[in-house]
Amino acid sequence: MAEAELSRPAGTAEDWTVPQDWAAYSPAEHAMWDRLFARQAAMLPDRVVPEFIAGLDMLRMDKPGIPDFEALSERLMKATGWQVVAVPGLVPDRVFFEHLANRRFVAGRFIRRPDQLDYLEEPDVFHDVFGHVPLLSHPVFADYMQAYGEGGLRADGLGAIDRLARLYWYTVEFGLIRQDSGLKLYGAGIVSSFGESKFALDDASPNRIGFGLERLMRTQYRIDDYQQSYFVIDSFDDLLRQTIETDFAPLYRRLEGQPDLEPETVLPEDHVYTLGTQAYARAKAPGCPLPSEELPHDDRT
């Protein structure tokens, strides 16, 4: 998600884009992509939504090395009319929304260092491209992302970006989906993380709660660690339908009169797939240690 109050770096275009400069990547940087790709590709097939794997295949992202955005965009444009554009890092909210509304996905061009293998604060090219781009080849999800960008432009005028950011966070970044074979991953923040790809489905700690637009937009989220709650959609079609059929202006007004919910909160009316123990979060809270055998492996440290 974007950040507000940023200054445009020198050398960027008015829309904050920059050349990817693919030829400038070093062999070590390409090798880091290949290492990350191989690790995720080996563990995701039984966990991620099939549409994600189909996107990887269709976009030929198994080709060694960091993808060339120009070639990637050519294939993506033929599928859904989207393209990938490089930016120097985080961009202001309105710039972010304008790109999405015009079917342009902004991606950082740098790749993490070896000491950042399992966690880094600012999204890199692996998170942005491996995590996000495959599902942009799926027509319904591609439409949802455009609708979100258009909604973001409206939210900006209503002073409601913080509320709408929660929708992006709990769907595009950290969403789960219910399928006949069980819960599957689709959020980019999960599928690009080796640790969270396991934690989000397997660990007893987090809640897994049925998607509700208003419920989700009341819920705060963690930006520095695994999520305490994940929201489960029924389908991409339903997610798109709720997004385009909802009048968000009265929803924002309604939310103003309601208290925020902590990330771990479970309400009596929630559809709960899994009631989490919150053991992972409690183990990391000051003054609340758990026995070592109860601590899950943390790939973010």
Score class of each variant (00 low, 15 high):
Q278R: 04
R253N: 14
P9V: 14
L6S: 09
R8C: 13
Q20V: 03
F174Q: 08
I244C: 09
L239A: 09
F231K: 01
V140D: 03
S197C: 13
D128V: 13
E264D: 15
P286N: 06
Q116C: 12
E150A: 11
F126C: 09
A54W: 04
P92T: 12
Q146M: 07
D34A: 05
E294F: 01
H271C: 13
G182Q: 09
R104I: 14
V87S: 00
P9W: 03
Q179V: 15
A200Y: 02
V232E: 05
R109P: 02
T301H: 11
Q258D: 10
P286G: 04
H271F: 12
S7M: 08
Y25M: 04
D202L: 00
R154F: 02
A147L: 04
P263G: 12
M217W: 01
I111F: 12
E196H: 05
P263R: 03
L176N: 06
F231M: 03
A24H: 06
R39N: 13
L100K: 01
T265K: 07
L117E: 09
C288S: 15
A86E: 01
E150L: 08
T219E: 03
Y226C: 02
S197E: 11
P268T: 11
D299C: 11
M1C: 04
D143W: 03
Y168C: 03
Y186R: 10
T80Y: 02
R241A: 14
G189S: 05
A107Y: 03
T243S: 07
G89E: 08
A10E: 15
F37H: 12
M217H: 02
Y170V: 09
R39C: 13
T301M: 08
P286C: 08
F96H: 07
D128A: 08
G157Q: 14
P123T: 00
A165S: 14
L216A: 01
W169R: 00
R208H: 09
W16Y: 08
T17G: 09
F199H: 06
P123A: 05
R300A: 11
I161T: 11
T80F: 00
F194M: 12
D260C: 06
G152L: 05
A4N: 13
G152V: 08
L120E: 12
S137N: 05
E122D: 14
S26G: 13
P268Q: 10
Q258F: 05
L36Q: 07
V133C: 10
P286M: 00
K184L: 15
D247I: 08
F130Q: 07
T277Y: 04
I190Q: 00
D225F: 00
R253V: 13
T171K: 00
D118N: 15
A281H: 14
H271Q: 15
L72V: 13
P139K: 08
C288K: 12
Y273A: 05
A28K: 10
R112S: 00
